[in-house]
Structures are given as C-alpha cells and as structure tokens.
Amino acid sequence: MKMAVISEHLGLSWAELARELQFSVEDINRIRVENPNSLLEQSVALLNLWVIREGQNANMENLYTALQSIDRGEIVNMLE
C-alpha cells in the first residue's frame, strides 16, 4: 500500500531515487525502455526491482532515508 503511494508521488524523481538506491545507469535506462509512456509505471518498476534486489533488507526505513536524501521528504511525511 505504501509503495503505491510512493509510486504515485515520485513523478520525475523516480530516476533520482534509483540512483540513490544504487541502481546503475543501465538499470534506469532499462526501466525507461520497458515502461516508456508512464512515470507511474517507471516508479512501480523501480520499487519492484528494489524489493527483489534487497529481499529481506527492503524495508521502509531504508526507502524513507533514500527519499529524504533526494529532498522528497514530503512523501515520507504523507505516510507517517
């Protein structure tokens, strides 16, 4: 549920979040190519990849820290 809210509000910031979460330029470009027409779909794809990559370590605290690092703390505030 929280992931959906984050995806809805990320907009163009999804790529900046991807870099903050240590995704490569290739990963970011692949997300763009696979989801060409929708920032929402790109955001969802990023968060899904992050959960798959991090497994047990994919917790909201880590995601909140990354969001705050890219000056998107207002998204965190909405969810708390």
Rank of each mutant, 00 (worst) to 15 (best):
V44I: 08
A45N: 08
L39E: 15
R32Q: 10
A15D: 08
M60R: 03
E74H: 11
R32N: 06
E8D: 07
D27H: 10
F23Y: 05
A4N: 12
D71K: 12
Q68E: 11
A4T: 13
Q42Y: 01
F23G: 01
L79P: 07
A4E: 10
E74W: 11
Q68Y: 08
A4L: 07
A45I: 05
R19N: 06
G11F: 04
L49P: 02
L17Q: 00
V25Y: 15
R19V: 11
S13V: 04
N29C: 09
E61S: 07
I31W: 01
M3Q: 09
D71Q: 07
I75E: 02
R53A: 04
E54N: 12
R19L: 14
A4I: 15
A15R: 10
E16C: 07
Y64C: 08
L63Y: 02
R30M: 12
H9A: 05
I31E: 00
S24K: 10
D71C: 10
S69C: 14
E20Y: 07
I28M: 06
S13L: 05
R53P: 00
Q56T: 15
A4Q: 12
R32K: 07
I31Q: 03
R30V: 09
E54A: 04
I28Q: 04
S69Q: 10
A15F: 12
S69T: 13
L10H: 00
L79V: 15
N59H: 06
M3C: 06
E74R: 03
N77Y: 08
M3V: 13
Q68M: 09
A15V: 14
R53C: 02
W14H: 01
S7C: 11
N62G: 14
I75W: 03
G73D: 04
L21E: 00
D27N: 04
E54Y: 06
A66H: 10
L47R: 02
S24E: 12
A45F: 03
Q42G: 00
T65L: 11
H9Q: 14
N62S: 11
H9L: 05
Y64W: 04
N48A: 05
L21H: 00
S7D: 01
D71M: 10
Q68V: 11
E8N: 12
H9F: 08
M60H: 15
E80T: 06
E8H: 05
P36L: 02
W50S: 02
M78Y: 10
Q22R: 11
K2Y: 06
M60I: 12
L12H: 15
G73C: 07
V5M: 11
S24D: 09
R30I: 06
V51P: 03
E61P: 03
E54C: 09
E20M: 11
L21C: 02
S38T: 07
S38L: 02
R19T: 11
Y64Q: 03
I75Q: 03
I52V: 11
V25T: 09
N77R: 14
N37M: 08
V25G: 10
A58V: 15
W14R: 00
D27Y: 03
V44Q: 15
D71A: 08
T65F: 11
L17G: 00
G11M: 05
L49V: 06
N62C: 10
D27A: 11
L10F: 03
Q42C: 12
Y64H: 06
E34C: 07
